[in-house]
Design a protein around this nucleic acid. Structure first.
Lengths: 218, 218
DNA sequence: TCGTTTTCTGACCGTATGGTCAAGGTTGAG
DNA sequence: CTCAACCTTGACCATACGGTCAGAAAACGA
């Protein structure tokens, strides 16, 4: 209860409002698209007057950029699960787990990202050409090393990555379709686990991923 | 050169204009989203005055509905390749071929469909609940029969279908990202073939699909 | 307490959009 | 040729949107 770390009320309010706005914006951009989203709708959902949004974010595009950048951060963080794995079973398995978890917990963010890329990545083209390309090249190298080490079949690493992205993100981006085909109900915890297991199993078996067996190592 | 099948000029012009409008609309809706698309932009791309669009399609929404319905037709047609296949190798293989071909030849349509579903399917919810659900249930039955006949591993057919949709449509919907990671160039014919083969191989192997061997049949 | 900085907000503005309309042009059957 | 049905289009309209702004309110340092 002491005064340690007490934030000034100004900073506290600023953070809280920015959070409210960004969460509302993420949802509205995801559900209506950039063109269909209106500042008024975002303001209403955040519980703030529209003019207040423009106080924190000068323009609609700036707000959108901030939303997309935050999503990219989450994406990058999940990508770390790929690293430092001894083989494809651990690395790709953990990556699928992480990306399925993102689809489940951040469906709006995933949709905003998908929408952005589908429309030609007008605001994050530079991310694609720098950070994403570097990350991709690095992971391609890792996969190739696993292939060379005989830990999996020789599969084009690039297309394998695309498959991983596609299958995991599908559960967020096409969640509405999946929900409809599920009788109108969202997937429950067990169904999410089943989806994750099925995806992991098909892909790991499909690439002929082999467990590392230390007893066979020289 | 005879007059057989000569269309009256009126009908001819009507068809041509509707085609021009629908093609332009598909592209604009795909690139800008429903909210971002404007009738003026579509009109310019079709080479017609805006008022003329409203003569053929009363409202923006009606034009959009028509575009989406056309895409669904293509989708359904490709789905036929699943049928009458003796086993998963032929059925799923042909389906992947067909869907990859759609992604390649109709990227705009695929994006419009994806966008529509991502936004909660406001105009095609009835399709999802009727035609798509029936088609899906039928295919789930076919897959289950293959499993029962020992032609593939016991895999949840539902998630397998989602994987097929996700991986194939990804090449259209996320084509811009793939292009960027491909050094800024669209996939050439060889790369498309490589993608198709990789997807087919990983999935068919992943589900343990076995060729039918007539010599082993009773 | 006082003055300054930051935050908040209703009212307002210019513009772009979906849609309308009336008048003129074109086509084709009788 | 005639006339009705159909097609085309520039000009127009109401609305909704992103963005602005002046002034009130709150927070803060001294």
């Amino acid at each position: 209860m002491s005064g340690n770390q007490r934030q000034s009320k100004r900073i506290q309010t600023r953070r809280e409002n920015e959070r409210l706005i960004l969460e509302a914006a993420e949802k509205v951009f995801a559900e209506a698209g950039y063109g269909g989203a209106t500042m008024q709708l975002i303001a209403d959902m955040a519980g703030l007057p529209k003019a207040n949004l423009h106080y924190y974010f000068a323009t609609k595009e700036e707000l959108y950029r901030t939303v997309v950048a935050r999503i990219f951060e989450i994406w990058l963080h999940a990508a770390e699960s790929f690293d430092n794995a001894p083989g494809p079973v651990e690395g790709i398995g953990a990556y699928i787990d992480a990306k399925m978890e993102i689809s489940r917990r951040h469906p709006f963010g995933s949709k905003v990202w998908a929408s952005e890329v589908m429309h030609g990545a007008p605001v994050i083209q530079d991310y694609l050409e720098t950070t994403l390309r570097e990350w991709t090249d690095g992971r391609i190298g890792a996969i190739q090393r696993w292939i060379d080490d005989g830990l999996m079949d020789p599969v084009d690493p690039r297309h394998l990555l695309y498959m991983l992205w596609a299958t995991t993100q599908h559960y967020a981006d096409f969640g509405h379709q999946i929900e409809t085909l599920n009788g109108g109900a969202a997937l429950d915890a067990g169904q999410w686990a089943g989806a994750t297991e099925t995806v992991k199993r098909i892909i790991l078996r499909g690439i002929g991923a082999r467990e590392i067996r230390p007893d066979l190592a020289k």
